[in-house]
Every structure is written in C-alpha cells, then in structure tokens.
Amino acid sequence: MKPGIRNQIIGMMRFSYPSEGGFLKGGQGEDPAFEARLYAPDRLERRFRMFEKLALPSLLAQTDDDFRMVFLIGRSLPDLWRDRLTDLIAPLRGARVVALPSMPHYKAIRRAFAMALSDTATHVTGFRLDDDDALDRDHIARMRQVVGALLPISGLDLPLVTGCNRGFFLELRADGNRLLAANEKNPGAQGLAMTTPAQVSENIFRRNHRFASQFYNTFTDANQIGFIRTVHMDNDSDPHATGSIEPMEWDAAAPLIAQHFPFTAEMLQTL
C-alpha cells in the first residue's frame, strides 16, 4: 500500500434484518406476517446453529484480526435473540451490533457501514458474509495483501472488488450432508469486498455480486480455498455455482478443511 493510505477493513453481516427489499423470496419491512416468519423460533434456531458452527468460528480464527465486523439487526428483533447474538460475538475483536428500523435494504447497509468507519481511514474495504457461511482463516490477511498491491494500479479513487472463486458448497440433507468442490466463474458473495475512498458510500451490496466485474475492476483468487457456502431449506437465493462443481468424498476433503478452516469434516457432516 502506498504511504499515507490507511485502509480500514469492515465486514457486514445481515442477521435476519427485516429490510424493505433485499429478499428474493417475498416479504419485506414491517409487515407483521413477514416478521413472524423471519423471527420464527425454529428458523432462528437454525440460523444460530449455522452461525455458531460456521460463520463465527471462521471470523474468530482469522490470522489477521484487525477488522471490524458489523452485525445488522432489526430493532424489532426480540431481546432473547439479540442478547444471544451479543453474547456470542463478545470475543470477536471489533464486533458491533447495529440495530436499525426497517428501511430500504441498501440505505440500511450504507448507514451501518458508516457507523463503523474510523475518522482516520482514507479508504475502506467492506466485505460481506452471510450468517450461514464461512471464510477460510487467511481471508482477511489475503484480502489486505491483495488490496494493498492492486489499489495503486487499479486507481486510488475507483472502486476495487476482490474475492475468491474457489471453495465448498455444503448441502444440508436429511439423508446425510453432502460436500461439493466449487470453482466459480463469477464472483461469489462469501467474503466478497469492495475498496473505495472512505468518503464514498458505495459498497459491495450496491450490485448483485455475480455482476461485479461488469461494473468494477475485479480480482478473484482462483487458487485458494476461500469459503464454505451452505445449501439448506432457509436459503433466500437459489444456491448454484456459475462454474465447475463436483461432489467430493469426505475423506478426501478432510485434510483441506482442517488446513483452511477452524473446524473438522466430521462437524460438517453432522451440522
């Protein structure tokens, strides 16, 4: 990174936030029926289970822990669940719960990012992560290195998108979980980031992540195993790979999972 550039890394996780828009499968905002589905205890228990087993451990295990992590929730989230989330993220350096009323999706995201931004940052790298996915333990360190190398080339005043093409899809199935090795053709959402000058409010949620390279200078690493994406009954989007995807035997995957993630293949099999 050039002298004088102070790049702040901020992660964003929408934790069952009842936005106006942003959901592909219907429902939005303060509609009581929508909030009832979003905050249904059985659904939230499933979300917390995946968060506790996948997303949170992967954040706690980062080899570079110099980042802030924003957990965006609705002000209407019942205290029981809000307190549980707050207690869980307490060990995570830089973690912060932001509770907002229901508002248009991108407006809420922009406001939440702004609340985490340091006054001393010249640039911000904002990345996204869902509560049911995981990042490899070197994600932040690799992102910082890649952004530092590419930003001066791409342009200090232009958005730069960085991410990872390679990882695993984890299908949660009643007849036994299945693992698939994926190498995406288009950028996936897991850990995808956008770097901009700090005064620019545009962020990685501005466009559909699949189309990032259509609008921004984009670098995605096709060599490193960078993510685990879960496929299950509560997915809002249609989970599909845009490149190659092949089933992988658990015995073959076990050493790769242990190398890149803070959990075991056995845990993934029983999640």
Rank of each mutant, 00 (worst) to 15 (best):
L158I: 11
R142C: 07
M69F: 10
M13F: 08
G226A: 09
I9Y: 12
E45K: 15
Q8W: 01
Q28R: 14
I257M: 02
I89A: 00
L158Y: 11
D132C: 04
F227N: 05
Q199W: 15
P3D: 09
V200W: 13
D31L: 02
K2G: 14
A189G: 12
G191L: 01
T122C: 10
R173V: 01
R46M: 12
L56E: 02
M267C: 12
R93F: 06
D236E: 08
E266L: 03
R75H: 13
R110S: 15
H123T: 03
L129T: 03
R144D: 06
L256A: 04
G167N: 04
P78F: 10
Q28L: 11
N203V: 01
F15R: 08
D130G: 07
G243S: 04
S213V: 09
D251K: 14
T162R: 08
T270I: 01
R229M: 03
A108V: 10
N183Q: 14
N165D: 06
T218E: 04
T86C: 05
F113R: 15
R82Y: 06
L117A: 10
L192P: 11
N203F: 00
D157E: 14
A241D: 02
L170P: 00
L44D: 02
R14D: 08
Y216A: 11
L158E: 14
V70T: 01
I140N: 05
A258D: 14
D42T: 11
R75C: 13
